[in-house]
Design a protein around this nucleic acid. Sequence first.
DNA 1: AAGTGGTCTAGACCACTAT
DNA 2: TAGTGGTCTAGACCACTTA
Lengths: 245, 245
Amino acid sequence: MASSDPVYLRIVEDLRRQIVEGSLPPGGSIPSRAQLTRRYGVGETAARHALRVLVAEGLVVGKVGSGHYVRERPDLLPLHRDRFLGHHAPLAADLQAQGLRVTWNWRLERVPAPPGIAARLRLPESAPVVRTRYVLRAAGRPVQLAAAYEPAELAGESGPAEGAEARQSVPARMSAAGIRVTGVVESVRTRVPEPAESDMLDLVTGTPVLHVERTHLAGERPVETSDIVLPGDRFHLVYPLTFPA
Amino acid sequence: MASSDPVYLRIVEDLRRQIVEGSLPPGGSIPSRAQLTRRYGVGETAARHALRVLVAEGLVVGKVGSGHYVRERPDLLPLHRDRFLGHHAPLAADLQAQGLRVTWNWRLERVPAPPGIAARLRLPESAPVVRTRYVLRAAGRPVQLAAAYEPAELAGESGPAEGAEARQSVPARMSAAGIRVTGVVESVRTRVPEPAESDMLDLVTGTPVLHVERTHLAGERPVETSDIVLPGDRFHLVYPLTFPA
DNA sequence: AAGTGGTCTAGACCACTAT
DNA sequence: TAGTGGTCTAGACCACTTA
């Protein structure tokens, strides 16, 4: 009953059912390769493959030398994207408001606009832009990678090129260039992390990321755009929408 | 150079580099297991494993009997979550405005509030609610699964229990119960799809989903909430935010 | 010292695709 | 008919954890 053709799927389905039902609780231990071969009467390959699949699904984590365990799922922290819009680091401010200790680093470079960025800023190909890379940490752990771009002619040359302190916020900096920021558009997608992101964010296998493309507008004109990458197992993004009357 | 300890990782990194660089273009074919064993001087297991990893990353798809190919990535369709807020099916309306042919089915049931839903609607545990399940299709392909819940006492008994036609929108139905809907809150997360979702949405391995938790509010009071699941390789969600003056 | 997961070899069968 | 991916067997070595 309730089994499919391939042998390993019988194991996968069996264990998955126990996990979602809760008879294998989070943190609980999964039978070892050797136990699975005995219990289900299959070869090592099938047992191994079954465990691989569960790991890829993010249901299970393997600890070398110890065993496989049902993955513990941290609660998702809400990020209220409408709050702290005037701040330099709205996400950091939101997390701090929730009682987390947040630190960050940033580094500023002048570069030709990468493909895609030029279009987002409505600039010609390879126009000079200022790129700022951020790494945000909460309680010491990296929780956000971001790269922000603005046209070089709007960036000015105020302030340091890197640090752990707050820069001025985007609207504050733009206002120094005589530009009033009127709105932000955020575009949210999801994808599998790149290896470098997986490393930096310390992601377990099977964790997708949220990728937010964020653009500041002065009227219709884009004046700053950024790519924000967040671990999908730690955050959810909250957007309030006002209803037409 | 540029290689790591395990043998299979050398293959993975080599192929991944060629894919992201574009020397292996989308749709292009990946060396077969046999070719990889010869070319890299490794056993079948390592070659097999390397291909598995690339498939899990969503960079590659395997076609049985034919070969592995670089995955073709469809453009992401924007879903403007602020538009068509007064419509029965805002997502469908948005897609139709983009020129897609959209159809849907829904089915209505009276059930006790599932865990989590009661809290979201601020109802007691297992309070009676009306659940409506939707399957949305664009150009014939399923593109959205949704389950909407509203308190049974607000639902009334107007209209059919299932169909392919539009129901009244949430604010229209609520207004019949004397309630004026004032806002919506959307909470966006990402996760690996459940097997049933993978089936229904026809997802290739390595595709995460976007999961939107959407709640209609009358003032502070939640009057309807829904879970919306979207394939992560087809859509991105667009939220405009107005900037404080 | 025993058990475990991660990696790997050498081979095999099947259903399927391409020609 | 030859090649391919998906599955599977029967083993093996290593670094690591656990006790």
